[in-house]
Design a binder for these strands. Structure first.
Lengths: 143, 143
DNA sequence: TATGATTATATCGCACACGACAAAAATAAA
DNA sequence: TTTATTTTTGTCGTGTGCGATATAATCATA
């Protein structure tokens, strides 16, 4: 008897996560355009709106991203005048990131986004929450 | 009374999907290295192992990707000798993609991947299935 | 049967992600 | 206190994703 392959697309975890992630990015696009932010830049801003000030490595940890991704992102955000970078005096290896006034102000423009997205996605709120919780649980394995 | 912000990272859908997707990619990496494939190249192969032969646009639809992403992927896979491209004779706009013998053979090497991944993720199988189903439901909104 | 619109694929440019590696500062160990 | 190791940040190269656009083939319709 020939064994059934486990490589069917429908059975994979890799594929729907990947496709869903990109699809969500597309849904955010029109709103992020209004803010003049790319998707990863928006994620950095989300953290900063919550934390006010942290180091590059703390930011990396929060986002599960490497410095070689975050450093150029921060450069772009600084060029837009949204964040400020300052090398620490106690430990000169670390760099502190904080919002500028302009960066802080952008938050109020972003407040409308979550509700609009939920509407665009058109799925029961309960299911979205479930997805979110399962993924946070997944991510917690890698802290 | 000041209203609560809805921009907390924990409440977003965008962030955990994004981070989870990248994390899953990282988990696949060591096994894909053995096959000499990148992650998106692997996804293309998953479709082809299931379909044998289809057009570029059908492949794009299956993967929720645009041609401008898929075309270079196919070029790479052809360079590796895994797929063949042939312009259709009935409709000369379309290009048919099919596995080479080498591409077909790679499938048996890939069969071990799913089980290894489930083990690496270390989450109840039921929850992984739940995530998968929710995401497929989400994706179906965009067919 | 012209010709304007649509479709299928491809090219180009920009912005990530990330592995490999580099540089500088801090810490630990001999 | 040298010296080796670790930590923090950064640079560089490769491979996607995707918007904008190009090109060629097909279709629709006057």
């Amino acid at each position: 008897m020939k064994e059934k392959s486990h490589l069917l697309l429908k059975e994979q975890l890799c594929f729907p996560i990947y496709a869903t992630s990109r699809m969500v990015t597309r849904l955010y696009q029109p709103w992020l355009d209004k803010l003049g932010l790319t998707y990863p830049q928006y994620l950095v801003m989300l953290v900063l709106w919550e934390e006010q000030k942290l180091t590059v490595s703390q930011l990396c940890k929060r986002l599960y991203l490497n410095t070689n991704t975050v450093t150029p992102l921060l450069k772009k955000l600084r060029d837009k005048g949204l964040v400020a970078k300052e090398r620490s005096t106690e430990d000169e290896r670390t760099v502190h990131i904080e919002l500028t006034q302009k960066g802080d102000k952008l938050k109020s423009q972003a407040e409308e986004i979550p509700a609009n997205l939920v509407e665009a996605i058109d799925m029961p709120l309960e299911e979205l929450k479930q997805m979110r919780e399962l993924m946070w649980k997944f991510l917690s394995k890698f802290d």
